[in-house]
Structures are given as C-alpha cells and as structure tokens.
Computed example of a mutant assay.
Amino acid sequence: MIDKSFFIKRLVAYRELKKLNQEQLSKAMGFKDRQTLSAIETGTRELKPSELLQALKVLDISLEQFSDPYSLVGEANYSWRQCEATEEELSNYEDKTSRIVALLKDLDEKFSTTSHSVILPKLPITKNSTFHDVTKCAEQLVKEFNLGDFPADNLEELFFRKFNVSKLYVDMPNSISGAAIKLNTISVILINRNEIAGRRNFDTAHEAFHCLTWDAIPPKHVEKAYSNQKKKPYTEKLADAFASALLMPSESIEKYITLKESDITEDVINNLANKYGVSSIALMWRLVSLDKISRSHADRLDKELMAKNGQKDGEDLPPKLFNKQFVQYIHKSIDSGTLSVRKILSILDMTMEELNGLLVSYNLTVPYDL
C-alpha cells in the first residue's frame, strides 16, 4: 500500500515541474482560494480522489505516470554534459534514465549488504574555491586512498565504496556525454559507454566532482561538454581541473615525464595517455599546466595523430552495459520474485533477448523462466 504522503509529494513535484504556483493550480482545480491546496500540500487536509483526478487533468499527467514508484520526479536533480543536444532529446532521455536510476536506488535498498551512511560525503570546496584548491583536493584523494600512479582503474570502486556514488554505463545519443544525478541518499553518474575510454574516465571524474560539491556549487541542469574553454562556466572549469589532477597526479607526471620538451612527441603522449586512461589532448594540457611543455610546443603537436591515442579502429571496445553490482541486483530481483520480468523489461526498455544477453555478459545464469 502506498503512503498518502507519497501522493502529496508527487502533487507538489509535478506542480513545480509544470511551473505552476499554488494559486494557479488551486484556481484550475476549482478551489475558492490558495489556502485549500496549501493545506493539502502540508498534510493538514486530505486530498480527495476526485480532486487528485482533477489535478492530474490540469497537470496533463496520467494516473499511471503519477503513481509510478519508479519515477524520480521531485527526488532527483540532473546535470547533463552534452554537445548540441536538443531540449526534447534531453527531456526524453532523462525520462528514460530516471526509471533506471530509480530501479538502482530501489534494488540497492533491498539487496545491498553495505549500510550507506546517512551523512553524505562531500568535498571541502565552495563557490569561492580556486583551481589550486580543487587540484590540491584531488591530489590529496589520490594519496589518502592509495590510488597509485594511474588512478583511473580505481576510481569506480573509490566513488562507490567511499562516497556512495554509483556509475552506470549506458547507451546515449552521440550528442550526450554523461550526467551527474543527485538524490537524497545516493548520487549516480551516467556515462556514455560508446565514447573513447579516455573521455569516459575524464567524464567520470568530472561528474563525481559535481556529485560531491552539489550543495556548495550546484551545477546547471545542462552544460556543454566541449565548449570553448574561455566561454566555459567557472564551475565546469573547476570540475575539469579536479578531474585532470585526480587522473594525472603531479607526482606521477614527475615520475614518468623526464624527457626534455623537444623529446615529448605525439607518440610519447599517446603511450602515456593510455596508461593514465585519459585522452592524449587531456594529458597534453595537463603537461602544459605543470610546465612540462610550453603552449607553443603544444600548438606544434599533431592533434589529429593524438586524437585516437595511437589506437587503431576497434581497439577501444565499449564497457559492459550498466555495472556489475546493478546487474547482480537485477538478477537477484528476478530470481527471488521481488520484481516481475515484465516490470524489469519495461524499466530497462529491453527485449527478453537483450535482458538475457545482459545477464550472460556478467556471467550470470539466466533464470529458467526467461
């Protein structure tokens, strides 16, 4: 049975989503004054079924959509990293992924053997922080959690175990790079699994910065992924600086870049970028910031040769869909009868064959009734 407060929270969330104030919705619902709706929203007056149906008509929301337990309306804040995505494209994709994130949240609460702290972790960063501040913070994380010379391989485990930030690899339109999602109890990073590995890792660190500084410097709902650096908002520049220092620590750079500037070629950068798990362009600018190469030398480097990090077509295969923990949760929910296969297919927007393939890709046995 759904708690009555659930409907009230949803009513408030959809009213705000539709950009209606209490007075406007009250009038549309036929109330004499705003106080009636205010009493309903504060829980001092009961919402009658007929009134709910009238509100849904005004809000243009179906009862099924309104009562869907796998909806994050009013619960989640998104920040998209995109490049020329249309508003409709982002809206549609947000609706689709919000159900997947809601499923992750629900299954984590049901099946996780680890009790997450009710005090969500955050970085000591404010809107007044400088590039030096965020760089120092990132490099301190590398040392504190022993991430090694090449931290990219350990970031997913760090963010999940220590900061309660889950990462899901999803198939996104080419115009969307990733997203940070802030909920009350967890944060989720969505990464376009079809981008190159270096960009996937950089996006992960970039979005993690947003997740861990959301209250102090909340990101915009939509940001451009590859906008001109001079036009990029300060918060996005801070996130880039954090990601750069986290993935390419200065102590590690000092250890592996011992050549004089003229010997730091495209091949040298490509080979080292692959070890760091970043794009060659990202490493090049990190070397500039650490005074390992000059801007003039960077301008002379062949950007086209560096664009693929020295890899041939087909060498950088996309990672598996979602993540191991989430897919294990899905398997367990089906095997235990917690959720029906039909419900899982609906939320994930998959066919039976695709769900089978997902389970097999993580070496999980397909339940006999599939």
Results as ranks from 00 to 15, higher is better:
Cys211Trp: 07
Glu207Pro: 00
Asp267Met: 07
Leu283Met: 13
Trp285Lys: 03
Asp263Gln: 15
Pro69Ser: 14
Lys308Glu: 09
Gly277Phe: 11
Lys320Asn: 12
Asp291Pro: 02
Leu59Phe: 02
Tyr70Met: 01
Asn146Met: 07
Gln311Glu: 05
Lys303Asp: 08
Asn194Gln: 13
Leu123Phe: 15
Asp106Glu: 15
Leu301Gln: 12
Glu304Cys: 01
Ser296Phe: 05
Gln140Ser: 12
Ala138Asn: 10
Ser166Tyr: 12
Ser117Lys: 04
Gly30Asn: 04
Val268Asp: 13
Met248Leu: 09
Arg99Asp: 04
Asp335Glu: 13
Ala282Cys: 05
Lys122Leu: 02
Lys9Asp: 13
Glu195Leu: 15
Lys332Ser: 08
Phe6Cys: 05
Glu207Gln: 10
Pro49Glu: 02
Ser280Cys: 11
Leu183Ile: 10
Ala180Thr: 11
Val118Lys: 12
Phe145Tyr: 15
Ser187Pro: 00
Asp267Cys: 04
Leu246Gly: 10
Cys211Asp: 03
Trp214Phe: 15
Arg286Leu: 10
Tyr276Pro: 02
Glu139Leu: 14
Phe111His: 01
Ile176Asp: 00
Leu321Asp: 05
Lys18Gln: 09
Ser296Gly: 03
Ser244Phe: 02
Leu301Gly: 14
Phe209Arg: 05
Glu261Gln: 15
Tyr226Asp: 15
Leu190Arg: 01
Glu64Lys: 13
Lys237His: 06
Glu157Val: 07
Gln22Arg: 13
Ile257Glu: 03
Asn92Asp: 04
Arg81Val: 02
Ser91Trp: 00
Ser252Tyr: 04
Glu251Tyr: 12
Glu195Thr: 12
Asn323Phe: 04
Ala245Tyr: 09
Ile344Phe: 03
Phe163Arg: 10
Gln311Val: 05
Leu339Lys: 12
Phe326Ser: 09
Thr338Cys: 11
Leu141Ser: 03
Asp240Gln: 06
His221Ser: 14
Arg193Leu: 00
Ala282Lys: 13
Leu107Pro: 06
Asp299Leu: 14
Pro49His: 01
Gly277Tyr: 11
